[in-house]
Design a binder for these strands. Structure first.
Lengths: 336, 336
DNA sequence: CTGAAAGCGCTAACAA
DNA sequence: TTGTTAGCGCTTTCAG
């Protein structure tokens, strides 16, 4: 029934516990013959070491935490795949925590991470997060941290991002080159560095192309789906409504399509639409959607790799690392 | 820097470690005044108990594992949300393991779960899984298990599923009622009970409606995207090709749409399409897709709730539990 | 090369 | 009501 422990294994082998422990770790102190006997017996009895005993003693858990807003978004799904791939490869375990965009929850989780439960943390912050004390605290506590995608700009932690500013610029200039004269930008939050960067890129493009910028054309959506729908319909109901829309987060695609449908504004002839999006189905939407695709898998992977460097290499100053992986524009019918 | 431990907390309070421990657990043995002092000081010093020390001693980890094929599928994304919601509520931690449809990996992971790392397991098996010994072993080992969605049919473990047979029947009869005369069924695996159940439902419908059944119209796809695309194009290139398709898993939607596009077969006039699918974007595809939507969030939630009953209630015979939550048909243009 | 023993931080039985 | 103490299973000095 219950798993065998190292003591029983030692008894079975007529060896001391210490010797068995060292043999299993392939220590240089142990003779080849003994190692062979030990590993063989361990296998035969299906000995599985208790990770918590080991963690307690070594003060290492071989576990990392991934703290993200939610998983029902193709970016994070893909990122988790990337993280899992490298964690698995390194023999680490992955704890997942969803904040559901609640800053308070994020704080609680990070505080709990000081317990020694985890060796490192990957985080993509809440859209409410403006104060980064909880992250700094944890880092002070000796837990290596890598922020990815939604990072804190002015905090000294390792970061993995995509080229948000350039992508915002690219999105806007793409619309402009397709003939748009008035371009709206849909954001999710005033705090989120990534949507802000994208917004800055968008604004810069307007300036460079000498297009008028209207403050009201930057719309900040909320968590309330019905409300967002309304905001967008209001935007598009104006007599002189925008003829181009940049959607900065995937979840706003549906309300935009719905709004255009409800208002009888055909895409792309009346309104051209481009979205930051990792949905494989973007290609088969009606109309197919021009997207800026983030390298989600690679970002998860890179963030994890960076974290493990910080975990495994001494003298590696993790918090000064920073990496940018470019996004890609996929041109489709919605901006034809 | 390093977190404070219970001993230091005790010293600070001029109490014994045991007393402090009990006070923190709100034990009846401890006076109200002492409890107050202890919790206050614990808060002041930001005392965070070491979970591994506690786990080692109590032989409970307040951690569950979720083992699934992958997360880049909207069903599992939603299910994780459901699981996270109840785990968080119960104060449990969630370890996530992706098998990537590899049976071997699944075995390895489940074997490792015997270590005491987890108190319970939620699993959705690989499409290669035909042998369930690893699951039974783990259960024998005293780890409560709930299988969800992709379950093992003839194994004595708790199960949370949707009404796959009925849904398959429903999908087929929907197509038949829309006028289809030859209906194909796209599956992912011969082993997967859920796709088989759906297939049985489909076949039963054909029988009931006296529609001829052609063995070649049941197509088993693989992990190879290009190959799947080819299989589907082959199916639809026949002179007398099927005029209705049931897609049993989300990831086959794209190749079907692509194949129809490549072969110039318009949906729904030439081929009607219905898919098992949880994509919010199904509504805005071109054409919008008729779907059978599984209650993904609820299934994750229910599985987790069941697991916690097994974890917390004694005399609760978890492995005899079984729950079915119905799916829903959403009629759209692809079967008009 | 192997063994003995201390102790990681916490809980729980037993004593006081 | 509080304190003392023996471990949980493992790793790691230090001795042999």
């Amino acid at each position: 029934m219950d798993s065998i422990n190292i003591r029983q294994l030692a008894v079975e082998l007529n060896l001391s516990v210490g010797t068995v422990s060292k043999a299993l770790k392939d220590s240089y102190e142990i003779s080849a013959e003994t190692k062979r006997r030990v590993t063989e017996m361990a296998l035969r009895l299906n000995y599985i070491p208790n990770p918590y005993a080991s963690s307690l003693r070594r003060r290492k858990s071989k576990t990392i935490a991934v703290v993200i807003p939610e998983v029902a978004d193709s970016f994070f799904s893909l990122a988790i795949n990337g993280i899992d791939a490298v964690a698995r490869n390194k023999g680490y375990h992955v704890l997942i925590y969803l904040t559901h965009e609640s800053f308070e929850r994020e704080q609680t989780i990070l505080n709990e991470c000081k317990s020694g439960r985890i060796d490192g943390l990957l985080i993509s912050v809440t859209k409410e997060t403006t104060d980064y004390q909880h992250i700094c605290d944890l880092q002070q506590n000796g837990v290596p941290i890598v922020a990815f995608d939604r990072v804190a700009e002015d905090v000294n932690i390792a970061k993995v991002t995509t080229n948000d500013f350039e992508s915002g610029y690219l999105a806007a200039s793409h619309l402009i080159e397709k003939g748009c004269k008035r371009i709206a930008y849909l954001s999710l939050s005033k705090n989120l560095s990534i949507t802000n960067q994208r917004m800055e890129g968008y604004r810069q493009a307007l300036v460079n192309y000498s297009i008028a910028m209207n403050e009201n054309d930057t719309v900040f959506c909320t968590m309330d789906d019905a409300g967002n729908q309304q905001l967008i319909e209001d935007l598009l109901s104006q007599s002189n409504h925008p003829d181009g829309i940049i959607i900065s987060v995937e979840k706003l695609i549906l309300p935009v399509y719905d709004a255009c449908h409800n208002l009888n504004l055909s895409i792309p002839s009346k309104v051209k639409v481009i979205s930051f999006c990792n949905l494989p189905s973007a290609r088969i939407l009606n109309p197919s959607l021009t997207t800026i695709t983030q390298p989600a898998f690679e970002m998860g992977e890179t963030a994890a790799e960076l974290l493990f460097k910080g975990l495994e290499k001494r003298n590696f100053i993790l918090k000064e690392e920073s990496m940018t992986i470019p996004s890609i524009l996929n041109e489709r019918e919605s901006t034809l």
